[in-house]
Amino acid sequence: MKLLTCPINGTRPLSEFIFGGEYRQAPDQNTCSDAEWAAYVHNRQGAPGDKKEWWYHSPSGTWFIAERNTQTDKVARTYLLADAKKVVKESK
């Protein structure tokens, strides 16, 4: 079974995690059109590649972000959403 690293609890088998879907920024609901909102709600970036995703470590109740390649299933890094800015800065 694949391993995934929770930023708080460390490396665990995938069975301890729940997939939370792609991490996406909603459009401003006050200014976007109905069509834009419908697209946000239903459409997905379906093509394979590097994606930011929500993952949840069940035993500890920890949500975090994983940067994962959806084709190779390799995880580049994981971090708490709150640390996202820091992580981006560090990698620059």
Binding site: A39, H42, N43, R44, Q45, G46, A47, P48, T70
Partner: peptide, 17 residues
């Protein structure tokens, strides 16, 4: 492979693999 093809024509769909 649909999302790879739709990406070629710039079409967004709800499809997830």
């Amino acid at each position: 492979f649909t999302p790879r093809i739709t990406e070629m024509v710039g079409l967004e769909t709800p499809i997830v693999i």
